[in-house]
Design a protein around this nucleic acid. Sequence first.
DNA 1: AAAGCGGGGTG
DNA 2: CACCCAGCTTT
Length: 354
Amino acid sequence: MGKFSSDLILWYKENKRDLPWRRTSEVYRVWVSEIILQQTRVNQGINYYLTLTEAFPTVHHLARASEDEVLKLWQGLGYYSRARNMHAAAKYVSQELNGVFPDTFDGLLKLKGIGPYTAAAISSICYNQPHTVVDGNVFRVLTRIYGVETAINTSQGKKQIEELAQSLNDGKAYGDFNQAIMEFGALHCTPQLPACQCCIFSDTCWALQHNKVHLLPVKEKKLQVKKRYLNFIVLFNKEEQTVIQRRNHNDIWRGLYQYPLIETTQVISPQNLLNTDELRELTAQQDIHLISEYSFKHQLTHRRLIINILNIQIPSLAHLTSPQYQLIKTDQVNKYAFPKPLSRIFNETPKHRL
DNA sequence: AAAGCGGGGTG
DNA sequence: CACCCAGCTTT
């Protein structure tokens, strides 16, 4: 075993965190943790892991749940296709594989929501197979220590790090190596302010010796943040009913619920909104009463959302008979999974209704 | 190859 | 504010 892997694994054994999914060897639980941790920090995922594994102790429990139930528990974590894919994969494993997860890299790769990273993680952690993970931590740690200045968001840069990582994972503890390098990136070789003063690799780290730690890894393009203007219409009648709908198109928040939405290409005033054809259709030209309206911004990684909320009292909701609409009591909105910017207004909305 | 998909933490 | 996180899927 090379010096890099032996030093790294030794560091890991002394510094690793006590995390819930490290207390089990069940593939199901490791799988759930890996899906949660895709593009998500450990601290953000822990409570979701505990909640989900308590609600669904086995893959069969998860498979028997409805997609709405799974999404409700996933509410607030983001990247909701993970929850939908995880649920679909659970049904497949439960029904077609008799509840037994595939035990090979290629078999795991066939499950929805499992890509090269997750297949390598599960096969190495659960079965100690010789596959090597390449995630954001691995890119950072290896480009710095080995001085790789190729942009990591190119196929060439990816391939370079994959081969380097694979060659370094040369011991027999493949799963430990993978967890060790990710833990090292998360706790020590961090994106900002890495702890280079007390680093076990300070003697050999290329970036430290060339004073380029903060410049690695190299990324080529920046993402573009586009704006979207979302106007949500909260309708309610004297019986304290309201109407919601499920987002079923291929867009953000797919599978979650929302109040009827009027999306515009630019800022629109509440008064102009009231005059749109879409709103006339929603209200069926009834004598409505605009109780309140307010606006706020919601920042996603690659979108800036400008959100309007219109609270409208309306005599009747009986005209909204299309199957896309669901009439519910206003105190039942908490039963459904809502996007963060909508779930956060639940506690504010009732005040505006008085 | 590039775009789309959330929400939160950090400096 | 910019950048990043135990990435995957679709275009």
